[in-house]
Design a protein around this nucleic acid. Sequence first.
DNA 1: ATGTAATTTCAGAAATTACTGAAATGCAGG
DNA 2: CCTGCATTTCAGTAATTTCTGAAATTACAT
Lengths: 189, 189
Amino acid sequence: MNLSSLEQEFVLHFGEMGSRWGINRTVGQIYALLFLSDQPLNAEHIVEKLGFSRSNVSMGLKELQAWNLVRLKHLPDDRRDYFSAPDDLWEIVRTLVAERKKREIDPTLTKLRELEMQTPSNESDAHAHSKISDLRELIELLTGWHDDMNRLETERLVQLLSLGSKLQKFAAKAETIVPFKRAAKENPS
Amino acid sequence: MNLSSLEQEFVLHFGEMGSRWGINRTVGQIYALLFLSDQPLNAEHIVEKLGFSRSNVSMGLKELQAWNLVRLKHLPDDRRDYFSAPDDLWEIVRTLVAERKKREIDPTLTKLRELEMQTPSNESDAHAHSKISDLRELIELLTGWHDDMNRLETERLVQLLSLGSKLQKFAAKAETIVPFKRAAKENPS
DNA sequence: ATGTAATTTCAGAAATTACTGAAATGCAGG
DNA sequence: CCTGCATTTCAGTAATTTCTGAAATTACAT
C-alpha cells in the first residue's frame, strides 16, 4: 500500500527537518511514518513505504529505540517486530526534551563541574573560571526547573502553559507568599 | 598568546558538543573562546589561538552572526572587526532558544498548517489529518508559551524558574483566580 | 587613482556521516 | 541438530559536510 500525498508530504518534511534535529533523514521519515500510522508497522512495511534498504531501516529503528521514541510490539503468531509511536503527544515531547537534555546538556554540565574543580593559575584563568562557574549555575537552574516540570502530570502542565503571560502576575504574587531567595553571590545574607 | 589548560579544555569540549548542537566544531570552539575572553577578539587572534585557517574562521564568525550570538565591535584607529559574546548569560540562552525555534520549529509549524488545509480524501488520510492537527495544536501551545516567557525580563524569569515545583501549587490556586479554559475540542462550551 | 590591509567567496581536498548488500547472528519450530 | 525466517552487523561505497588556499572583493588611506 502506498502513501497518500498528505502522508507523503508529511514524511518528506520530517526527513528534511531530521538533519536539523540531530537525527538523519531516514530516521526522521521512519518516525513520521510511525507517528501517522494507526497500526504498528514492521520493518518490511517501512521498507515498502519509504524505499530504504532493509538494513538502513533496521538501523533507523534501533536509533529510535535508543531515543525511547518508539514502542516495540508483537502480534500473535507473528514473530516479526512491530513498532509504533506513543499515542500521547505529550509523552513524545517529554521524551524528546529529556533525551536532548541527556545528550546536549548533561555532558557539558559534567565537564563544567570538572573544570570548576581546577584552581585557576593566573589572572586571565581566574576570569575564565568565573565565567565557567556562572554558566554552570545557570544550567543547573534550568535543568532543575526541567526536572520539576517533568514531575507534573500532563493536565497540570497544560494548565500552566496555557496561563502563559499571566504567570508574570503570579510571580509577583508568589513572592509575597513564598519569599524569593536570591542567588548567594548577589545577596549573601 | 596561548590558552591555559582550563581554557583549552573548555574550548575543546564546546567543539565536540558543537556537532550535537547543530553547529560545527569550528564554530563551537570559536564561540567558546569568545565566551571566555574578557576582551573582544579579531579574526587573527582566533586563528592564532585555535589554529584554523583564516577562511574557516571567517565562515565561523559569519555563522555566529547569523545566529545573533556575537556582537561586532570596533576599536579606535583599528579597522579590523572585533567580536565578543554577550556578557549576559541569559541573553545567550534566550538567543539560542529563539534561533533554534526559528530553525527547528517554525518551518514545521508552517508545513503543518499548510497540510491541514488539504481536505483528507480517504479514510486513513483522515486519521493522518487529525494527527497533524493535534501536533500543530500542541506546537502552537508551546511556542505561544515561549513567546510569553520571552516577554518577561530576566529578573522575573529567574524568580519563576527558581520557584520550580512550587508552581504546581500556584497552578491550582491560579485556577481559582483565573478560570482555566480548556481546549475547544475537549469542552466546546 | 593606487596601494594596502581586512574580509569574503569559492572550487576542490579532506573528513565525516549515511546507506547498501552480503554475510553473520539469533531464534522458534520440527 | 537442522531449517527457515527475521534481524543485525559490517565493510565498502556514496553522499554530505567541513575545511583550506588562492583569488576576488571591500574599505580605507594616501
